[in-house]
Each structure stands twice: as C-alpha cells, then as structure tokens.
C-alpha cells in the first residue's frame, strides 16, 4: 500500500486537470487578453480596469461582509440548535428532522422562501397587526443584506448543527457525569465541556472554512433579492461579486460582454478567498494549540 497509492490518485488528478486546471488556465489566459476585440495580449490592463471600477469594490466588500456574517450566524445557529436538542427528552429525532429542513433547500429556494412577499410578509403582518408596530421596510436601511445573511445561515446552520451534535456525541459519557455530579447545571456543563469540544474540533474548523469559502461565492440568494428589489443593473447594492459578474454577462453595460474583465474578476475573487481561507486556517490552528 505504498506505491499503489500513487496510482490510485491518478484518476482524481486526471479529473481535476480537466475540470479545474484547464478552465483555470483558460481563465488566466482570458484575463490577460482582450477577448472579443482582437484577442491580443494586453497584460494587466483588464485588472487595472477592474480595480478602477467602484462597482467592483462595492461588490467585493458586499461579498466579504456577506460571507463573514453568514459564517458567524450559521455557527451561532448550528451550535444553539445542537444545544437545544441535547435538552430535549422525547421526540428528539422529530425536532432534529425539522431543524434539518433548510439544509435540503436549494439556495434559490432559500432566496424564494425568505422573499419580502413570502416569509417577511408574514413577519411584517405579525409585527404590525399583532404587536402594533409600524411596518419595517425590507428594502431599506441595509436590512436586505441582513436578511440575505440570515437566509444563507438558515440554510447552512443545520450542517453546523449536525457536526456539533456529532462532536457532542463523541465526548466521553463520564466527562458529563463528572460535571453533573459536581452539581453543574446543563448549561454550565455545556459551556465548560460541550462548547469547547465543538469549537476545538478539527471537523468544526473544516466546516467553518467550507462555509466561509462557499459564502464567498454566494450567488443564488443575492440573485433572488435582486429580483425581489428590482436591482437588475450591475453595481446595485445587493450585488455580491458573483452576482455582479453574472449581471455583466447578462446585461453588459456597453452591449459587449466583457469576458476578459469577468475572468480577471473571478481570479481576483479566488485570490481573496484563498487569502481569507489561509487566515482562517492559521487562526484556528493557533487556537487549537492553546
């Protein structure tokens, strides 16, 4: 099982070469040429043009805010749902199944389910007619950004919950019993034993990274919100970088699809995400060592 291992990964490498390395190399090529207008080598002109656009910076910062927010909120949701489930005495399986529902929803479904005229209409009705408060405007005050983060976390919180539950289950039973025999409450047992176990586990760190990385590419929820709020032009406030690029493809500003520009932007997003991931990875390794 030593030399054979190399042969066993050959199919994987072949697949990655075709579906990852080839398109990536092609993207790099596109980003340094003027696609559609001659195709000549233009060096870093596309990047310079990209960096000079305020819309790009706005979209990039929206992406960073969105994915940081979504990572934090989905961790909070996942861990608190896991804690809640440990308190349930009967029917735990039923509650777990209900809490898992959002995980099965497609991101576009999350965009639809949390639409202003869907879920938020119900919330607004309750808020206004039952609690007597004035309507809140989901389109204003950056509230839509918060709702987008919330719907993304709604979808991926359950995954965090599953992982947190599996970590909790792996804590040896006697540890809990010892804690309880000292008269600790369920909450303080969780705080001193369960929570650190979750936050220090490699699998949870892995999930945090995956969550951040996936949210950096987030497209469907912002896309749906662009539809709800009628922000159909590139550079609208709901634009994450992915959505901005999509709009450049679909409704190009000058009628010409800026393929080279989009490739350059996609590669910049890749670099930013990689940097963020490396930072997260370092941070969590550091935490684990303490």
């Amino acid at each position: 099982m030593d030399r054979t291992a190399y042969f066993l990964v050959v199919p994987l490498i072949a697949v990655l070469a075709v579906v990852e390395a080839y398109p990536l190399a092609y993207s790099v090529y596109l980003s340094v040429t003027s696609y559609g207008v001659g195709g000549a080598f233009v060096g870093l002109t596309n990047y310079a043009q990209l960096f000079s656009q305020p819309d790009f910076w706005a979209a990039l910062s929206t992406s960073v805010v969105f994915s940081s927010g979504s990572t934090v909120v989905s961790i909070a949701l996942g861990v608190s749902f896991a804690y809640l489930l440990t308190l349930v005495r009967r029917g735990r399986g039923v509650f777990e199944a209900v809490f898992l529902m959002p995980l099965a929803a497609a991101p576009i479904v999350a965009g639809v389910a949390f639409a202003p005229s869907g879920f938020w209409d119900d919330i607004n009705t309750f808020w206004h007619y039952v609690l007597g408060q004035p309507y809140f405007n989901v389109a204003g005050n950056h509230l839509y950004l918060f709702i987008m983060v919330l719907s993304d976390s709604w979808e991926w919180g359950p995954m965090m919950m599953l992982v947190a539950l599996s970590v909790l289950a792996s804590v040896p039973r006697p540890v809990y019993e010892a804690s309880e025999s000292f008269g600790a409450s369920r909450w303080s047992t969780f705080r001193t034993v369960g929570l650190p176990a979750i936050l220090n586990s490699p699998v949870f760190h892995f999930m945090i990274i995956i969550r951040f990385v996936d949210a950096m590419r987030a497209f469907e929820i912002p896309f749906a919100w662009a539809g709800w709020l009628n922000y159909l032009y590139p550079g609208a406030p709901t634009d994450t970088l992915s959505l901005y690029l999509f709009k450049l493809l679909l409704v190009p500003p000058n009628g010409v699809i800026p393929i080279s520009l989009i490739s350059a932007a996609a590669l910049v997003l890749l670099v930013v995400t990689l940097l963020g991931t490396t930072l997260l990875y370092r941070l969590m390794r550091g935490l684990r060592k303490i």
């Binding site: 990655l16 398109p23 993207s27 990385v213 590669l267 995400t273």
Partner: peptide, 17 residues
Amino acid sequence: LALRTVSPFAIVLPLYL
C-alpha cells in the same frame, strides 16, 4: 479544499467557450 475557493465564473466561462 483550495480548489473549492475557485469562483464558478473562473470555471464556467472557459467551459462555456
């Protein structure tokens, strides 16, 4: 893990072409 950070646009445009 690193490949997961690749934006879909860096994959989709070349594949489309």
